[in-house]
């Protein structure tokens, strides 16, 4: 598994060599473009991450967890997964911290541990992707992107519980 990334790098560089391309010069040109990319996304990321951090620190999400937990339990979802499910679309780093929290307290092979694993593996940070991609080209009218993304996240939560129940217990 650990060979994949170096292998990709080698294949790219040596295909370049065989096609008589000045690989290092071209690499540097590309890397400079990368630096420009970073510059374009800087304002977007600072704006987004600050507002997400404010939201997380305000306790609003904990409050939401308290409301949703009894509902989730009635549907057969373990309570431990609720905070991860809520934070997952909003904050990648935050939900990873909660995931590790579940691993530490219940173990990665527990029912909840397996569910949060599947959840983390099958979703991305929706808000991050939406703000980053549209923010970078200055589009504010994103139409139904967020609805479709969140519908996928909700589906992923439901199916991570279902698949773990069916195949992993």
């Amino acid at each position: 598994m650990s060979l994949i990334v170096p292998l990709i790098v080698l294949v790219i560089v040596f295909t370049g060599i065989f096609r008589k391309i000045p690989v290092f010069e071209v690499f540097c040109q590309g890397a400079l473009k990368g630096l420009n990319t970073i510059l374009t996304i800087t304002p977007t990321l600072i704006g987004l991450i600050t507002s997400v951090t404010m939201l997380r620190e305000s306790g609003a999400l904990d409050f939401l967890t308290v409301i949703i937990t009894p509902l989730a339990e009635q549907l057969g979802f373990p309570a431990e997964i609720v905070p991860v499910a809520i934070l997952r679309p909003i904050s990648g780093g935050g939900s990873t911290a909660l995931l590790i929290d579940v691993f530490e307290h219940y173990g990665p092979d527990s029912f909840a541990g397996k569910i949060v694993s599947v959840m983390a593996g099958s979703t991305e940070t929706t808000f991050y992707a939406v703000t980053l991609y549209f923010g970078s080209i200055g589009i504010k009218k994103i139409r139904h992107t967020l609805i479709a993304g969140l519908a996928a996240d909700l589906t992923a939560v439901i199916f991570s519980v279902l698949t773990v129940r069916l195949f992993l217990i």
Partner: peptide, 18 residues
């Protein structure tokens, strides 16, 4: 920054070599 620049550079090579 490091990873993004590195992969942008790699992709530039991949792009030029088809």
């Amino acid at each position: 920054i490091g990873i993004i620049c590195f992969w942008s550079g790699m992709m530039e090579i991949a792009d030029k070599s088809g």
